[in-house]
Nucleic acid binder design. Structure first.
Lengths: 253, 253
DNA sequence: CGGATACTTGAAATAATTCAAAGAATGTGG
DNA sequence: CCACATTCTTTGAATTATTTCAAGTATCCG
């Protein structure tokens, strides 16, 4: 009978200074292409390195932050996967996204100076802590960094709008197809296979995210598998016919 | 057989310089409490006034901007109501929001330097054009303005996340109740009645927004009306029992 | 290994959609 | 300013996609 780790407060699982040692710095980070520092020059990168000075490790099932926590920083994922979810007063919840390495967490907190969702690690993970105040001091000097920050927020809005389209108008087949294609595309952008993937989340979490019940997700995966578009072996999914999947959601390849 | 006004390009319906004359300036605007200038001091306000120098009138049914249009500015609604919608390659579309006076349109465009949705006027409307580059020059000097801008974007993310919750997990009754309560609350924040409202959108647009068919919206309104929670006379809706409506979506008043 | 969690599959139930028709409101052109 | 066409809204009946309930199997983790 383990205490549910998600029930605990979101205390740091660990914290360590980071970029004083060159090889942990933004300037050396393999995720530079998908994370904050996109498009910065040497000088700007060095300043950023000084600022992103803390890392935090989060164990599977633990929260990086929770709804209501004061907002002081946002986070760039170095290693691992998270889910974000909003929770209603009466206990209903909605997974609003799955985030992977290089993606940013916590920007929704700026609005109220408090986080408005939970971010829970789906596997042992590690994030870079980016202090908002500190970051803004830097961004006010380097306009390109400010602009990049705006782009990141704007992209988040775009992503959420597309999710509204999915939730508002797509069938179960289409939702699952869109979900798998999106995941594959992001894996590929990180140098992994665009066909093969290991899901880090349960059917229930996928269903919650897609506005479906877990049984419907399971059935839909089976159906797509029967139709030869994918192969399913538990959480190992292979895209066998991406073109057909795209066609499902109205994309001509 | 009229040419559909929505089919036309989004050319300015009209444009005029604005704030050179004091009474049209941000500093005098009745929407100050709900729009951009929140929390600025005199000095900052004057600078903002100089910048928000152009207004645009948009006739009912016409687009302020369309998906694909280059992004150069965002917009604050002075008068009227808009809907935003995203459109898929295959013609499906999703209304992602209804915006009223004081609210900001177009921030989704920053990410790609192009607008990613259409903003269509639901009645004859007028907006303040806020040039993004110009605004950023000012915001880089005045940290509070930059911070406010971030809050506006963050609030947009929050709003979209709540919409995902609605679309992902609520029944038709709950969706319509949440929609009406939200509208009423925003009307009230603008000094109008929190009970009485004139909808500016069709049942179809509401349905599209809420992930329902127009018939379902109509039936749901009838049902809420039969239950005495609201009265419906075409687009005139009156909230007769807001507490019951809130209870529907799990809010204890 | 054993208990708990995750996943699949079937059958019945249901909420919402689709199809259809008719009535009300709105706006346009004569 | 009226008449007609168009758009919008309501309502009913049949259909359907998804959910719910239920049971069984597989898998993971300590």
């Amino acid at each position: 009978m383990n205490p549910n780790p998600q029930a605990g407060r979101s205390a740091p699982d660990s914290a360590q200074p980071a970029s004083a040692f060159g090889k942990l710095a933004c300037s050396n980070c393999k995720l530079r292409d998908v994370c904050m520092p996109v498009g910065l020059d040497e000088n700007e990168l060095n300043r950023l390195d000084q600022m992103v000075s803390v890392r935090r490790k989060i164990k599977k099932g633990h929260a990086l932050f929770r709804s209501g926590d004061p907002f002081t920083a946002f986070y760039a994922i170095r290693v691992g996967t998270f889910k974000s979810r909003v929770v209603t007063p009466d206990g209903k919840d909605q997974v609003t996204g799955f985030q992977m390495a290089g993606e940013i967490l916590g920007l929704e907190g700026i609005s109220m100076d408090r986080h408005a969702c939970d971010a829970v690690a789906l596997e042992d993970s590690e994030v870079c802590v980016i202090d908002y105040q500190h970051f803004q001091m830097l961004a006010n000097e380097f306009a390109p960094l400010q602009k990049h920050f705006h782009r990141v927020m704007s992209r988040e809005i775009l992503r959420d709008r597309n999710m509204m389209l999915l939730l508002g108008s797509m069938s179960a087949d289409q939702r699952v197809a869109a979900f798998l294609l999106n995941l594959a595309q992001r894996q590929q952008a990180r140098g992994f296979s665009g066909q093969d993937m290991m899901l880090r989340m349960t059917r229930e979490e996928i269903g919650n995210y897609l506005g479906l019940k877990l049984e419907t997700v399971s059935r839909t995966l089976t159906r797509l598998s029967d139709d030869g578009m994918i192969s399913v072996d538990q959480r190992h999914i292979r895209l066998l016919n991406a073109t057909a999947l795209k066609a499902l959601i109205g994309l001509t390849d």
